[in-house]
């Protein structure tokens, strides 16, 4: 087929991605070496100045730690709970088909709505969670769950799980359904327990899907801005501060565009290292096959 046509086909996509992704990204990286501020029109290059400032920025280190911990906990829990959910949905019991068709609803609604729902449910006076707690006599637990430094971070984790676990479950289920049933039958004849066949047949069978889901969600969770910003804004007292929110606050609330960009660049570097490792593992996997 004509190769010139092919370029014409992908040029619109590439043009949009270049103008609105590659160029802004390159500009963002360039800004990270400047003292750009939204308050003055001119700026100059200050070399690694921003990065030196970062070393002594307590909130930066806090946000970095939160981001890493959040990403690891969220992705691990989603993976485990997603596998359990997928296993359950694979059982052909009455009602399961209906269940499968509605369970992903939490994934399709806007994050801003999700946050609003949970903020309402977490209200100390009228929130559903606290109404339930009071009714079973646990009055001392009643609080505004997003406003308490000791529970806010857990609430953020919960929001991520609420949105994504059904998505994991459904995709894992789709992958499981491509595994031939005969494999399970012969394993059963050989006396394998259900757990053994899950470990030796199901997991290897969906390993590629697990890889894709984990990789993409590590990137998405680490970069996620909406949940924390809308639910807590990073507070109370920075107890939920994460890097994307910190970058946003530096750039737009404190007008420190250069410094904000430098933190964004560090985020990019960390994810790039992760992504390269993923590509190498994937290459190796293909080679072995």
């Amino acid at each position: 087929m004509n190769r010139k046509n092919a370029y014409l086909l992908i040029i619109p996509a590439l043009a949009i991605m270049c103008a609105f992704t590659v160029y802004p990204l390159a500009e963002g990286i360039r800004l990270s070496f400047t003292n750009a501020s939204m308050l003055r029109p001119t700026y100059r290059y200050i070399g690694l100045g921003n990065f030196k400032q970062m070393i002594n920025d307590r909130v930066f280190w806090l946000a970095l730690r939160h981001s890493v911990v959040l990403t690891v906990i969220v992705v691990l829990l989603q993976l485990v709970l997603g596998l359990i959910l997928a296993w359950a949905m694979k059982q052909e019991v009455p009602g399961m088909a209906a269940f499968r068709s509605v369970i992903m609803a939490s994934w399709v609604i806007p994050v801003a709505a999700t946050v609003t729902i949970f903020k309402f449910m977490a209200q100390p006076d009228v929130g559903f969670i606290n109404i339930i707690l009071r009714s079973i006599g646990l009055d001392r637990l009643v609080r505004y769950w997003f406003g308490d430094p000791s529970t806010a971070f857990a609430c953020i984790i919960l929001l991520h799980l609420w949105r994504n676990v059904p998505f994991y479950g459904i995709t894992f289920l789709a992958a499981m359904q491509t595994i031939p049933e005969s494999l399970y039958e012969s394993a059963e004849i050989d006396g394998a327990s259900p757990l053994q066949s899950f470990w030796h047949i199901t997991l290897p069978g969906i390993s590629h899907m697990i890889m894709v889901m984990v990789t993409i969600h590590v990137l998405w969770t680490f970069n996620n801005f909406d949940f924390v910003y809308l639910a807590t804004g990073g507070g109370p007292v920075d107890s939920t501060q994460v890097l994307p929110v910190y970058v946003y606050k530096q750039s737009w609330d404190r007008y420190a565009a250069g410094y904000g960009a430098s933190i964004g660049t560090v985020m990019l570097l960390l994810l790039a290292v992760y992504f390269v490792i993923y590509l190498l593992i994937q290459k190796k996997g293909e080679y072995e096959r």
């Binding site: 992908i10 590439l14 991605m17 103008a19 609105f20 992704t21 160029y23 802004p24 990204l25 500009e27 963002g28 990286i29 800004l31 939204m38 993409i216 990137l219 998405w220 970069n223 801005f225 890097l243 994307p244 970058v247 946003y248 750039s251 737009w252 565009a257 904000g260 960009a261 964004g264 660049t265 985020m267 990019l268 994810l271 790039a272 992760y274 992504f275 590509l279």
Partner: peptide, 23 residues
């Protein structure tokens, strides 16, 4: 190109935001 498309998923949107605003 395919790897490039996939790798855009790791770009922090907050880093691109000010330049995007200017574009």
């Amino acid at each position: 190109i395919i790897v490039g498309i996939f790798s855009t998923q790791m770009f922090p949107q907050v880093l691109m935001l000010i330049p995007l605003f200017l574009v």
